[in-house]
Simulated scan of single mutants.
Amino acid sequence: MGRQGNSSPRKTASGSRGGSGASGKTSAAVYRRRRLFVGVALLVAVALGLGGFAVAGAFNGKQASSTDGATEPASAPNAAPSENQAGTPTPAPTPSCNQNLVTVSASTDKAAYGPDENPLLSLKVTNGGPMPCEVNIGTSQMEYLITSGADRIFSSRDCQAKSEDLVKTIAPGASETANMPWPRNRTLEGCSLIEAKPGAGGAYYIFTAKLGSKASPKAVFQLN
């Protein structure tokens, strides 16, 4: 009976109400040990649960599955929930930086495209300063503009479905790149219907990437 009670504390605890047990001293000591074990196990379970919640709340989207976060719950049981909340350091604000040192560049994946190939347009933002910079790289700031001489061929803003902000901290010398395939179509402001398409046959086009008030140098490509 003693071994069965050690392997299943709950069954023994409920059974002790209805049956006559062994000696009083042995039964009381075993019962106290079982209660102590259950109490410790419950505290550990609660502490692990709080640690997992804190880690899950710290990440959003794809970062929720980050392997970096998997190691953090191990430190959670060492501190009470109130200590965790009070001891969490407030993130230091990103130092102000010289926005004039943030540059925008435009590029295409090829210099010339065949009749069945669509250009891939790339907008690249680089922090050329000596300290981190916060930059809004959301669709509210971006524009992919294609022209041919004085002819405005395409703008990503003409038929843009959403306009959202996305502020990111870019480290010194680091870059953020956003790619967009262009289906070789024309657009008009307000997304008015237009059936005309850009010419081919070796015609040259200019791609300019814009981010807020910043514009990139021109990137030239050819459509065959």
Rank of each mutant, 00 (worst) to 15 (best):
V102N: 02
V102C: 12
T103D: 07
V104K: 06
A106Q: 09
A106M: 04
A106G: 04
S107L: 01
S107C: 01
S107W: 03
T108R: 04
D109A: 05
D109K: 04
K110R: 03
K110E: 08
K110P: 02
A111F: 11
Y113L: 11
Y113Q: 04
Y113W: 09
G114E: 07
G114D: 08
G114S: 12
P115G: 08
P115Y: 06
P115S: 15
D116I: 08
D116G: 01
D116R: 09
E117D: 10
E117I: 01
E117V: 09
P119G: 03
P119K: 00
P119F: 02
L120Q: 10
L120Y: 04
L121T: 00
L121G: 04
L121Y: 10
S122R: 09
L123F: 04
K124C: 00
K124G: 01
K124F: 01
K124M: 05
T126C: 11
T126I: 03
N127R: 07
G128W: 07
G128C: 04
G129H: 05
G129T: 11
G129D: 10
P130Q: 11
P130V: 06
M131T: 14
M131Q: 14
M131K: 14
P132F: 15
P132D: 11
E134D: 12
E134V: 07
V135C: 07
N136A: 03
N136Q: 02
I137C: 00
I137F: 01
I137L: 06
I137G: 03
I137W: 00
I137E: 04
G138W: 05
G138D: 10
S140H: 06
S140E: 15
Q141R: 11
Q141C: 07
Q141M: 14
M142I: 12
M142V: 10
M142Q: 15
E143A: 12
E143M: 14
Y144A: 04
Y144E: 05
Y144D: 05
I146E: 11
T147V: 13
T147P: 08
S148I: 08
A150H: 07
D151R: 10
D151F: 14
R152V: 14
F154H: 05
F154C: 06
S155N: 11
S156F: 01
S156E: 00
S156Q: 03
S156N: 11
R157A: 09
R157F: 00
D158F: 13
C159E: 10
Q160S: 08
A161S: 07
A161M: 07
S163M: 11
S163F: 11
D165R: 06
L166P: 02
L166D: 15
V167F: 09
V167L: 02
K168H: 06
K168Y: 14
K168M: 13
T169R: 03
T169D: 10
T169L: 05
A171N: 13
A171C: 04
A171M: 13
P172T: 06
P172I: 07
P172Y: 07
P172L: 02
E176A: 14
E176Y: 12
E176V: 15
